[in-house]
């Protein structure tokens, strides 16, 4: 009897000691090897933006960078006709959860501009900074209805919120 009690006590003690330890270590996030090797194949890539099943990024080889939109479910990039230009340098990108709208800051013909791209329409619309300023990083709300953009005005960085019609 005594031996059985001792065994039960030992088992209980083991549980008491190991459970908090497991709690400290906790579950860990796991890399996604399939997707990560797909991303590796793009070459150099930066400026990630996740929403829904989409990953928008700026990537490319030999210093020629383009905006790319990767469908994470199919693990393939989708075409973005009319968005990339060989003479434009992309600076920042963001996508909504439907994968329909992309907000992009790019340097083109000596100026930096914010544009909104609608994939369904294959249409690109510039968004002027008012008052004038130089945009840099941009974040499109996941529901696509509004964007936040960092704008330099008179040497100070500000944040503008712009509703997307």
């Amino acid at each position: 009897m005594n031996r059985r009690h001792a065994a039960v006590r030992t088992a209980a003690l083991t549980v008491v000691l190991t459970v908090p330890l497991a709690g400290c270590l906790g579950p860990m996030p796991q890399p996604l090897p399939g997707l990560n090797s797909r991303l590796e194949a793009i070459g150099s890539s930066r400026s990630p933006a996740l929403a829904g099943r989409w990953l928008a990024l700026i990537g490319g080889r030999d210093g020629r960078e383009q905006v790319q939109l990767v469908d994470l479910e199919r693990q393939l990039p989708v075409p973005l006709p009319g968005l990339n230009r060989p003479d434009a340098q992309p600076i920042a990108v963001s996508v909504d959860a439907a994968g329909e709208r992309l907000a992009l800051v790019r340097h083109l013909e000596g100026r930096t501009e914010l544009v909104l791209y609608r994939r369904g329409l294959m249409a690109l619309e510039p968004i002027a900074m008012q008052p004038p300023g130089v945009p840099r990083r941009v974040n499109l709300r996941a529901d696509g209805r509004e964007l936040a953009v960092e704008v330099s005005r008179g040497g100070v960085w500000q944040v503008d919120l712009i509703q997307v019609p």
Binding site: L147, A148, E150, V156, I162
Partner: peptide
Amino acid sequence: WGRRSAGPSGLGGPTNREDPALSG
């Protein structure tokens, strides 16, 4: 385009505000 500034950061004076992120 309906637009507005993100408003004061509660810090007084012209201060830098960078790298915005909106909740969905």
